[in-house]
């Protein structure tokens, strides 16, 4: 029996809704688990990204310096990179800050809307980049799966195809904002 496909999921600037949709595959997760191992994900324990992963799902836009560093590193260690959901595909809601200056965004979040302790954090919170951009603006993306979030059925279809070594065609099955 051949080795199982190595699967990872990465959470950048998104609401985790796509990961929730992933979990919504419910019992079909067991079906997938027969063919693939989830080697890295916010949903599992390992904290370091493995040397090489076969299929990587990315949720979220590239917004902060941390996102930027992370996606570059992930790309270098991935075979097939999938932009999962509108934030990864279009920058979606994180991108709505783009017409504004970063400083204005900070002020809005940490000063104007803060009831207590009004200050802009300089530690722990990674600095924002000038704009939030889709993943494919930073690294090469192999498969795009729009949707907010993409349905569990669609994610199952995409993963089923990928673990069997096929590149899925999702056009017609989903849309921006679906």
């Amino acid at each position: 029996m051949s080795e199982k496909v190595k699967l990872a999921t990465v959470w950048l600037d998104g609401c985790s809704g796509c990961h929730m949709s992933f979990l919504d595959m419910d019992e079909r997760l067991l079906e997938l688990a027969e063919k693939a191992d989830l080697v890295y994900s916010p949903l599992v324990d390992p904290k370091t990204f493995p040397e090489m992963v076969d299929v990587v799902l990315i949720e979220g836009a590239v917004s902060s310096e941390e996102d930027y560093e992370k996606i570059k590193k992930v790309r270098a260690h991935s075979k097939v990179l999938v932009s999962l959901g509108d934030c990864a595909v279009t920058a979606n809601v994180p991108g709505m800050r783009n017409p504004f200056k970063v400083q204005d965004v900070y002020n809005r979040a940490y000063i104007e809307n803060a009831d207590y302790n009004q200050h802009i954090p300089v530690q722990v919170i990674p600095p924002l980049r000038k704009t939030s951009v889709p993943v494919h603006n930073v690294v090469k993306v192999d498969v795009f799966v729009p949707g907010c979030p993409p349905s569990a059925d669609l994610i199952f279809y995409v993963l089923s195809e990928l673990v069997d070594g096929r590149i899925p065609n999702v056009s017609g099955m989903t849309r921006f904002g679906a």
Partner: peptide, 15 residues
């Protein structure tokens, strides 16, 4: 976009 199969936008957003 769905009809034409545009699953992503190949150009940078102008914002």
């Amino acid at each position: 976009a769905q009809e034409l199969g545009n699953t992503h936008v190949g150009l940078p957003y102008l914002n």
